[in-house]
Design a protein around this nucleic acid. Structure first.
Lengths: 146, 146
DNA sequence: TATTGTTATACTCTATAACTATA
DNA sequence: TATAGTTATAGAGTATAACAATA
């Protein structure tokens, strides 16, 4: 077993595998009411609580204009609400609405419906590896502050 | 440690982590000459050899019209070439050109330049977990034939 | 008729640049 | 002037539907 990645093989193969997997995730979902991008924003609001559009953009690692559109679409769907910032008129506070909480719950079930079928075909060791990799991926994402 | 995913937690968290990681991969690359989607197609041609557009679409898990566009862009860049099928006038054979091979090599180095920095911050165990997960993700992708 | 591939069209996600409003 | 956010615009990636060419 290697302990370093001097030749970049791990970086390369990991990139391609993740891109293909993400493509499958986006394309294979049954519930088309919200996209995975929208769901990711809802999830962040659920985990971290209400925040400004700028903070949400930073948390999601997208640019503010991109988050503006995500917020607008989720607001149209009634899944979040926008309130004025108490002290700064430029900012706003984005809060998860009850419909947004319901969507998170429903989407978790929808993903389970197909991905869990795939996961069920894996060995317990493989499932454990996937569980471990979630934290590692999040660590890489969080560390990529350049 | 759990050995099943009855509540869908693994499916949900894995989905969100992978989507965010893929977003970072797409946005953070320095070499903008080819996209990760294009690179993935080049890589498949490199690993599996020349094939028809339909076969390449199937291998990449995208629809034929999507692959038509990827092939057109790579052909414009001189990284692949299209030849007539020897026996079936409807089909074509897509082959990796020398410039495509060079691009695969260059891109592997470019990815290494930034992702390896992140990987270097991980423990050997974490790197080994990532190495294991590549095969698991590919297994899931391959199995999702519904 | 069935298959392969392309064209036409549309939608989502993301970005940069320019702008408005507020601090 | 500086900051937060939106609007305008553009480009990549993907899809479905309709079409053309060939089997």
């Amino acid at each position: 077993m290697q302990t370093t990645d001097a030749d970049g093989t791990l970086a390369g193969e990991l990139s391609l595998a993740v891109v293909r997997f993400a493509r499958r995730l986006r394309g294979r979902r049954d519930n088309r009411l919200v996209s995975l991008t929208q769901l990711s924003a809802l999830n962040t609001l659920h985990v971290e609580g209400p925040m400004t559009p700028g903070a949400l953009a930073a948390a999601e690692r997208v640019r503010p204009p991109s988050m503006t559109r995500v917020i607008a679409s989720l607001s149209d769907l009634g899944m979040i609400k926008r309130d004025p910032h108490p002290t700064d008129g430029r900012q706003a506070i984005v809060t998860l609405a009850p419909a947004g909480v319901d969507m998170i719950t429903a989407e978790a079930a929808a993903r389970k419906a197909w991905l869990s079928d795939r996961l069920a075909e894996l060995t317990p060791d493989e499932q454990a590896t996937l569980r471990d990799v979630i934290g590692i991926l999040n660590k890489i994402i969080a560390g990529a502050d350049d």
